[in-house]
Design a protein around this nucleic acid. Structure first.
Length: 152
DNA sequence: GCCAACGTTGGC
DNA sequence: GCCAACGTTGGC
């Protein structure tokens, strides 16, 4: 099973919200590279690090699993939604989402620590100017980050 | 709030 | 197909 990292702004949707809901769709991905990964590679059973961005405590905060593979993100059709895309249509949807299920919180592994770890230097996350909201994580990187939590 | 980095758009 | 302008992301 593959492993991934999903970014979210906790002011909009946090790991705590996911825990309360237990399951959630992952809507609002509006980047072609991220979309293509969801479409082509993200499968039921894959594990996902949840990452909090644009907030006080930036970093990896928990784990979820994929429970539903790519299907159309209906927010793209809703003019009231911030994720509305006027160029998309139900007949030819442009954007998709997956569903995930909460697994557990992790003790925060801050971006600062991720950047300081040479074993993680190849992660898109720690590269300069990174903007990818969904990215693959290798088994080795996954284990390294788990080790950094001290929780395994 | 600032600003660097990046993706997208659109004129040509 | 190039590339400048623009909008967005995201750390700080």
């Amino acid at each position: 099973m593959a492993k991934w990292l999903f970014k979210t702004e906790p002011d909009t949707f946090s790991i705590d919200t996911l825990k309360q809901q237990k399951v959630s769709c992952w809507e609002g991905v509006r980047n072609y590279q991220a979309r293509n990964m969801m479409r082509d590679a993200i499968k039921v059973g894959d594990e996902v690090f949840i990452y909090h961005s644009s907030c006080k405590d930036v970093g990896v905060v928990g784990i979820a699993t994929v429970i539903k593979e790519a299907y159309p993100d209906h927010f793209q059709f809703d003019p009231q939604s911030p994720y509305f895309d006027p160029k998309s249509s139900p007949e030819n949807p442009r954007w998709i989402m997956v569903d995930i299920e909460y697994q557990r919180h992790l003790r925060l592994v801050s971006l600062k620590r991720l950047k300081a770890n040479p074993a993680l230097a190849e992660m898109p996350l720690v590269k300069r100017g990174n903007r990818l909201s969904i990215m693959p994580v290798t088994d080795a990187q996954w284990q390294e980050i788990l080790t950094m939590t001290g929780q395994f």
